[in-house]
Design a protein around this nucleic acid. Sequence first.
DNA 1: AGTGTATCCTGCAGGC
DNA 2: TGCCTGCAGGATACAC
Length: 280
Amino acid sequence: MPELPEVETVVRELATSLPGLEIAKVSVIHDDLLREPPHGFRNGLKGARFESVSRRGKNILLHFFPPQLLVVNLGMTGQLLFFAPHRGGDKPDDESPTHPGVVFELGAGGKLVYADIRRFGLLRRYKVDEWEAEDARLGPEPLDPALTPADLQMRLGSSRSPIRSWLLDQTRIAGIGNIYATEALFRAGVHPKRAASSISTEESDRLLTAIRGVLSESIQAQGTTLRDYRTASGEEGGFRSSLQAYGREGDPCRRCKTPIQRIVFGNRSAFLCPSCQPGP
DNA sequence: AGTGTATCCTGCAGGC
DNA sequence: TGCCTGCAGGATACAC
């Protein structure tokens, strides 16, 4: 679930609540979520003050003072939940996540909880320059106006990989996952198995428009909840009912009524309308 | 350079 | 009710 719109939603919420708060205590429940020993992680973050929150691709960037970053990738089922300080009468048990992985107790009495059922997520600390090196490995942001249709086509031009695989590759373009790749290709009328290099100028224009449309509409709806995704305040995203292809195998295409088809390649399901998205 | 496969892990839906 | 299989938003590593 957590693709660009879901991550953006979480980031926007956290950006209104975390800055200025200090980490009072760190509890690591599942150390397989980290890339370093838990004691180093705890000691490195205790006393750190949140400065800002931002996003890069599908990564949540928590910026601290003194300068360092905590970069959170939600994997498949990760949640980053903010709990404001309690007042009398609250029942914390009702809102406690079922699969906490790391708990940050905040100076003001609130807490930030990373929860993750499958634990494919990752919490990594970086020095600022270390992160810059990682950042440089990611492709451009699809919503960045600096990315032009001509840029996209130039990047596509050199690759013979299927366009769906190309879109999922974070080093080529950052933030797109299986749901939004599926939806954008449907909107653009491009078959998921078409070679990236075979995409025409007109098609890459349509594709970029479709990518931006589906991502920004989903951000408006606070993302897509299939099962586990929640915003930082625990809400479900509302974009699921707007999906036109993803998960709709056998259902009629909303444009032409042809049954939506499911195919599998690259170890992932792809959904398409065989009529609106003619084969490679 | 690409692709197919496997891995990490848990939970749920569907078939029997 | 229970057991089994397949499948899931992601990232990465491997052999070919």
